[in-house]
Structure formats: C-alpha cells, structure tokens
C-alpha cells in the first residue's frame, strides 16, 4: 500500500519542521507550504490524502483558504491546527467544512490518532456516504 500523503500548510518554520519529522516517523509522505497561495497550489498538484492547515497564514484570512480548500473537487479531510482560541473557533471551523479543530499545542497521540481515523474513514467514501438512515 502506498504511503498516505499529508499536506502541511503552516508558516511557522519550527512547528512545520517538528511536525514534519513526527509525521514522517509515522510513515506519511509530507508536503509543505508556508503561505496560502503555495498551499492551494500544492493541494492541487499533490492531491494529498489529508491537509493540516494553520489559520494564521501571512497576509491571508485562514477561513478564506479553508473555504477554497473545502470547495475544491475531491477535497481531502482538513484538520485545522491553530493557536487561536478553541472556544471561539472550533465550531466556526467545523461549519466551514474542516473535520477537526486542534488548538496548539496538541498531544502527539491525539493528533496522530485523529489523522489515522480520518484517513481510514476517507478510504471508504462510498460506504460512508451511503450509510443508511433507518
């Protein structure tokens, strides 16, 4: 089975590097982007299986980027990873189409567990969308 591809859109170099090492150590292919434009370009070019998105990108409203990513065809699940206040943003981020909101810093196990779960779920889109409502 080929490695899953994760796109990490994050402008903080240190966080990007650290999280990248952690993700690679867990057997993912990791691609990086440091701003909105390259994030959107990478998302189109690499076709990642999951995107980790920081809301505070330089000069961009994170919600606009999130909106564009969600609107793209065959959008992968998106995890928002932000320093912003959970109480103010968790619901908003979900409503905008992200799957999960994680407030920085987050426990490694929690983050990796959620990523695994989301990737497994995305593997059966057929099954999930046809889940019968009895």
């Amino acid at each position: 089975m080929p490695k899953k591809k994760i796109l990490l859109i994050e402008d903080d170099l240190d966080v990007r590097q650290g999280l990248g090492i952690r993700l690679k150590a867990n057997d993912y292919d990791v691609y990086f982007a440091g701003d909105a434009a390259s994030g959107l370009a990478e998302a189109g070019a690499r076709r990642p299986d999951l995107i980790i998105l920081d809301l505070g990108l330089p000069g961009e409203d994170g919600y606009l980027v999130l909106g564009e990513l969600v609107a793209s065809p065959q959008a992968p699940p998106i995890v928002v990873f932000s320093a912003r206040d959970r109480q103010a943003h968790e619901q908003r981020v979900r409503d905008a189409g992200a799957k999960v909101f994680f407030q920085k810093p987050v426990d490694n196990e929690e983050l990796l567990g959620t990523i695994r779960q989301l990737l497994t779920l995305a593997d059966q889109p057929h099954k999930a969308s046809e889940a019968e409502v009895r």
């Binding site: 903080d12 240190d14 966080v15 650290g18 999280l19 090492i21 952690r22 150590a25 320093a83 407030q103 920085k104 810093p105 987050v106 490694n108």
Partner: peptide
C-alpha cells in the same frame, strides 16, 4: 505563546 510552545513540545518529544 502557543506557537513557540508547540515547537518546543514537538522537538522535545522527538
């Protein structure tokens, strides 16, 4: 404070 703390946590845990 959260971003630097995140980086510290990541590298320490690495």
């Amino acid at each position: 404070l959260r971003s630097p703390l995140t980086a510290i946590y990541q590298f320490v845990s690495i």
